[in-house]
């Protein structure tokens, strides 16, 4: 089955999920649970927390299926992005919990504390999960990994710390002992270089810097 077939079928399944079809929901779960759980596990490195993230990701899919606009993104990228956001959020809460010396049972306190103390660079919004260039997702996992492996160590490190360790740019600069400006330009260059290594993504759009 080609990628566009899969996307069309996902969209059909999602329409059925919007009608509360459990069969359709189960099919989507079977198709993507591995990827969602894989991302949570990669970020959280904890089975129970990763399961919670996976569960929450799919529950949101179930509840929001009727609001999902297939024209604005595809189901798979929505799920992957949602899993990532929830996992990073959980990671930051865990960090706050540990910093405050709370144990796992003080979840409620931690949640309250995190409202004030966490500095997440995003909140979780549906529209953030939309990815327009579905065609880009045809690129194989292997090729993307090779592209990432082809980055220089400092560039890879910035992506790793931001994307998988949930650190903000200030925290990254502090962790690496580098000037803030260096971290900024590396983040930008890293994405740019990945795009160059994956020519299917098309040319980088220009922006006149003021």
């Amino acid at each position: 089955m080609t990628t566009s077939d899969t996307q069309a079928e996902d969209a059909r399944l999602l329409r059925l999920v919007a009608l509360h079809s459990r069969d359709a929901f189960e099919m989507l779960y079977d198709r993507y649970a591995g990827q969602v759980y894989g991302i949570a596990q990669r970020i959280l490195e904890d089975r129970s927390a990763s399961e919670e993230v996976t569960q929450e990701t799919f529950l949101r899919l179930w509840r929001r299926a009727e609001q999902f606009d297939a024209a604005r993104g595809n189901v798979r990228s929505w799920l992957l992005t949602m899993a990532h956001r929830l996992a990073i959020d959980a990671l930051r809460r865990r960090r706050v919990r540990r910093a405050l010396g709370l144990d796992r049972h003080s979840e409620q306190q931690a949640a309250e504390a995190s409202e004030a103390d966490l500095q997440p660079g995003w909140d979780i919004r549906d529209e953030d999960a939309d990815v327009h260039e579905e065609a880009a997702l045809n690129i194989s996992r292997q090729r993307v990994r090779q592209a990432i492996a082809g980055l220089s160590e400092p560039h890879r490190r910035v992506i790793e710390l931001a994307f998988f360790s949930g650190l903000t740019h200030r925290e990254i600069a502090e962790r690496l002992g580098e000037p803030l400006g260096t971290v900024h330009s590396r983040a930008r260059q890293a994405l740019l270089m990945l795009r160059q290594k994956l020519p299917e993504l098309g040319p980088e759009p220009g922006l006149n810097e003021a």
Partner: peptide, 11 residues
């Protein structure tokens, strides 16, 4: 798109 590709590359 690049960010999503990084996610999709996770095993």
């Amino acid at each position: 798109v690049v960010a999503t590709l990084i996610l999709a590359s996770v095993e």
